[in-house]
């Protein structure tokens, strides 16, 4: 394929037919997946997610900063674990394995958002990450992609912002489009 553009949070999935039905289609896709009932009660899952938030917060603050990439990364990490996958074991201890998995979710998200994103340059910017080898990046990225079934063009609530924008605008004169998008 010649060109697949950057992931557009408002238009992630191809749609054919009447554009008025587009949001119905998105709702249908989104509602086909629900969270596991014990999502917030599993202790290890809770710890991993806390760690993921910290790692994403720390390592997303770089030249390639993109708030949507951070959000996508957390989405990928959650879905990877929810699909029943184990954290790839390529580092010396569990916590490092979790951190590398989160960082690879972040690199995958950046690759979806910015075609020019380059891991080598990112490592140069983040000295702590220089110890991660090329093979480790390769293996963990691949394992995450497999665990996610390569479904990186996800429907998120952001897709529905244009739908609700008009409704917000009708509720109060103090809300304008800029506030909503911010």
């Amino acid at each position: 394929m010649l060109r697949v553009p950057d992931y557009d949070p408002y238009n992630p999935i191809p749609f054919h037919g009447n554009q008025r039905n587009k949001f119905d289609y998105y709702f249908k896709l989104e509602s086909s997946v629900t969270d596991p009932e014990d999502y917030d009660t599993r202790k290890s899952r809770y710890k991993f997610r806390c760690r993921a938030l910290i790692v994403i917060f720390k390592y997303s603050n770089c030249k390639s900063y993109d708030p949507l990439a951070s959000y996508l990364a957390l989405n990928y990490f959650d879905r990877y674990l929810d699909n029943g996958n184990r954290v790839p074991n390529v580092m010396s201890c569990l916590i490092h394995n979790v951190e590398l998995a989160v960082i690879c979710c972040l690199t995958l998200a950046w690759k979806m958002r910015n075609i020019t994103f380059n891991i080598s340059e990112y490592q140069a910017e983040m000295p702590n990450l220089r110890q991660i080898t090329e093979e480790q990046f390769m293996e963990v990225e691949f394992r995450i992609l497999e665990g996610l079934n390569w479904d990186l063009r996800v429907i998120t609530p952001i897709c529905f912002v244009p739908l609700y924008t008009t409704r917000f605008l009708g509720t109060s004169h103090r809300i304008n489009k800029r506030i909503i998008h911010d």
């Binding site: 289609y25 086909s32 629900t34 969270d35 999502y39 879905r79 929810d82 609530p157």
Partner: peptide, 21 residues
């Protein structure tokens, strides 16, 4: 409810909409 061969996985935002908010 299925919209394609991989419909169940498409858009699987299991982090959930609330996480997004």
């Amino acid at each position: 409810s299925s919209v394609g061969p991989f419909a169940a996985e498409v858009g699987s935002s299991s982090a959930g909409p609330s996480a997004a908010m």
